[in-house]
Structures are given as structure tokens and as C-alpha cells.
Simulated assay, not measured.
Amino acid sequence: MLWTSSVVLRRDIEQHQHNLHEFVVCLKGAVSITINDESHQLLSGHSVFIPAQYQHSITTDKNTETKLLFACIAPPSFDNLSTPANSLYLKTLSKGGFLTNNLNSSSQHSTQGMQKIANELEIQPISSSPLNVCLKENLYLRLLLIHISNAGYEQQANAQSSLRMTNAQDWINNNYTMDITLDKVAKQVNLSRSHFARQFRQHTGFSFIEYLLKLRCDAVAKNLASSNTDITEIAFASGFSNLSHFYRHFKRRYGITPGAFRLMIKHQGVTLRP
């Protein structure tokens, strides 16, 4: 059986778990829901599906009034909603896929659709009549399918972003010895300077310049260890155009000067492949 309730949340809900699938739609305000130690931020019109037995807690935004719609259903009843067309999606939901739908502003139409159906479900009378049960289940299923669709779009966008950053990373790896800039790399993947910089840091853990300097310093280190080529020549060949800049960043990365690094490697008998 499907149980629904809308609640104005005025306090946090501590971590707990239960035997029901729990679907939460944020109708107003903002809330943070932690599921199995992973936090998800929900704004108005966003939703989250919490499979049965998943540990979860809810933290409210004390500065805004938060209203949530809770829809809970036992796994056997949830399975009964399955049809040949939706069975794969519902099964994915119940196993923890498509947990969140936290869309950005470009998906305003989908967000409004989610809120409209959630409001319809909220005002349904408490009744065990077959007609009322059927109506509530249909509204619930429509919410789930919008949630799945939106969550899928978000995953697709994340995958596309990840592919772009991988391509950018490959391009930098192949061209770090050249005079490359943030603007040039952003142009390679058709992103603005600021958008690329933010996504690149999220993808690699480094800013663009940190990543570029790391590549260049590591290339110098490998050449110092494997050849007797002049240090200045190696630095310029690795993409550095300013020697004081090179010495400063090399020492920052390795803790010693390039000359001391070469002596240390030779004394230790270590060979680094270029």
C-alpha cells in the first residue's frame, strides 16, 4: 500500500532506515538528504528516491521554511507497479540507481511538472477505496517516471562533461611543451573559460595551471634522470619559457633544485623513463 504525507519540516531527522521505499519531493525551501553517507542537496521541485534499508538522514535549511512530500511504499507493492515498459527503470530505482533528480534552472519545465503532480498527490483524500488507491498509485508512478527521466538526463550531462574533460586532459598531455593557455584548452572543448576551469578542477582535482606545471616538472625530472642534457635546455623543451619560474615550481614540487635532483638520482642509481 502507498502512504503519502506532506510535512513542513522544522527540525532535522536523524539517520535511520526502514523496510519501505521512500520517495521525497521538495515542495518548498531547501533540504540536504544524506543516503548511505552521500549527501544530496534538494531545492523546490527536486526529488530523491531512497530504497528500502538504505540509511538516510535529513538536514533542513534553518533560514527557509521547508515543505516535503513523503511517499512510502512496501517493496512488494512497488513491484506491482511494474509493466513491461517501465520494469527496467523501476528495478534500477529499487537497487539505488537514479537516486536524485536535482535539476538546474535549464530544466524549469520538468521541475514545474514534478511540483504539479506532487501537489495533486498531496491533496488526495485518505481512503482505501480501489478507485482512490488506483489514482494515488498512478500519480505516484508519474512522479517516479519524471524523476527517472530527469535523473537520467543529469547522468547523461555528467557523462558528457566527463568526456569533455578527458578529451581536454588528453590534449594537454600531448601539447604541454607548447605555449598553451586556459583559453586555448577551453576552446578545444567548446566551453567558456570559467566553465572549463571549474569542470577541469572537479574532474582532475587540479586547477589548469597546477596540472600543466605538474606535467612540465615531471617531464623535466624524467629527463634529468635519464640524460646529461643541460638543465636549461630540458626546461625550455618541457614548455617552460622563464628559468626563474621553472626553478621555483620545480623546487616546490620536488623539494630540491633540479641540479640537486639530478645528483640524488645518480647517487641512488635510479632510472626514470622519459
Rank of each mutant, 00 (worst) to 15 (best):
S6D: 08
L9V: 08
R10D: 15
D12P: 01
I13P: 07
Q15W: 11
H16N: 15
L20D: 08
A30F: 07
V31S: 09
I33W: 00
I33H: 11
N36I: 06
N36E: 13
E38A: 10
S39D: 12
S39G: 10
Q41P: 07
L42K: 06
S47Q: 05
Q55N: 06
T66D: 10
P75E: 06
S82C: 08
T83N: 03
A85W: 14
N86C: 12
L88P: 09
S94R: 12
F98L: 12
L99P: 04
L99Y: 00
N101I: 10
N102P: 01
G113D: 02
A118H: 00
N119W: 03
N119G: 13
L121S: 14
E122A: 04
P125K: 03
P125I: 05
P125H: 11
I126F: 09
I126W: 08
N138F: 01
L143N: 11
I146E: 06
Q156R: 03
R164Q: 09
R164P: 11
D170R: 08
D170P: 06
N173A: 15
N175P: 02
Y176S: 14
T177L: 05
T177A: 06
T181A: 10
D183N: 03
V185T: 14
Q202W: 03
G205K: 05
K214E: 09
C217A: 12
A221W: 07
K222N: 10
A225N: 10
S227N: 02
T229K: 13
F236C: 13
A237M: 03
S241Y: 00
S241G: 15
N242P: 03
L243E: 06
R248N: 11
I256W: 01
G259E: 15
R262L: 09
I265Y: 05
I265S: 07
Q268I: 00
P274M: 03
